[in-house]
């Protein structure tokens, strides 16, 4: 645990060593909350459905930007060689970096807490749905960040890492979409709905957002995140050979 924490602390601090972290957070909050507010005044409902509905799309761009630096920077400036010769297991370093990105995303989510507070002041929102929505958003983020850290490990260039993780995340987003699944089903019967059910994230995310926090949905996000973290560790170990 000690070594995970040491890596975590350095990575988390380094987000704030440059102004980019603040710009990220401000843009994230402006976009998510701002987008929501326009819909809010239009509909006049005291719920956050449109907020959580739009969040995956924002996260597709926001989260690869959070993770792109994690390994690509080490690959580029050569600190990889120092990290990989520290007396730590590779997965400790992976977890330290991953948790730092997760905490940073958590900070962004925390910033949107003003929305439910406002809602409780002007109406009586369904708090259960809001809590479930936040849980879903956090799990979705955990998944995207795991994809991002894995992809970042494969490149020296941050921009490349950003674009590739965006594409990979978008794939998981897209195959979960009902229209896409139907189209693919039209080409090869059954493939689209199979992908939608077991690979795509949209249905799992939508379930949780509706308040259906069932084990299958949790397992999907946790195991997908774990898969990419394991891949990241394997890629690190593999580079020695």
């Amino acid at each position: 645990m000690g070594s995970v924490f040491i890596i975590f602390r350095r990575e988390f601090r380094s987000y704030f060593d440059s102004p980019i972290a603040y710009i990220f957070l401000i843009v994230f909050l402006l976009l998510t909350a701002g987008w929501y507010m326009t819909a809010f005044f239009l509909m006049g409902n005291a719920d956050m459905r449109s907020f959580f509905g739009n969040l995956p799309l924002f996260n597709l761009f926001f989260l690869p930007a959070v993770t792109m630096r994690l390994w690509a920077e080490d690959n580029r400036i050569g600190t990889m060689e120092m990290l990989m010769t520290l007396p730590m297991k590779s997965w400790h370093i992976v977890m330290g970096k991953y948790l730092a990105s997760l905490a940073f995303y958590g900070l962004g989510l925390l910033g949107t807490i003003t929305i439910p507070i406002t809602l409780t002041m002007i109406g009586s929102p369904d708090m259960g749905a809001i809590v479930a929505g936040y849980l879903g958003s956090f799990l979705l983020g955990a998944f995207f960040l795991a994809v991002g850290i894995f992809v970042s490990g494969l490149f020296k260039d941050q921009i490349t890492a950003f674009v590739v993780s965006l594409i990979v995340c978008f794939f998981f987003y897209l195959v979960g979409d009902g229209t896409v699944a139907q189209t693919v089903d039209g080409w090869v019967s059954g493939v689209g709905s199979f992908l939608q059910r077991f690979v795509g994230l949209t249905t799992h995310y939508a379930d949780i957002q509706r308040g259906v926090v069932d084990l299958r949905n949790l397992i999907y996000f946790v195991s997908m995140s774990a898969l990419f973290l394991v891949l990241n560790t394997l890629a690190l170990e593999g580079r020695r050979y």
């Binding site: 380094s14 400036i77 050569g78 060689e81 120092m82 010769t85 007396p87």
Partner: peptide, 20 residues
């Protein structure tokens, strides 16, 4: 890990976190 504990290493590309 046992080897790494015993060794201090300065690689050719001096590994520094320049923003620290």
């Amino acid at each position: 890990i046992g080897v790494r504990r015993k060794i201090g290493y300065l690689p050719e590309t001096n590994p520094l976190y320049t923003d620290m």
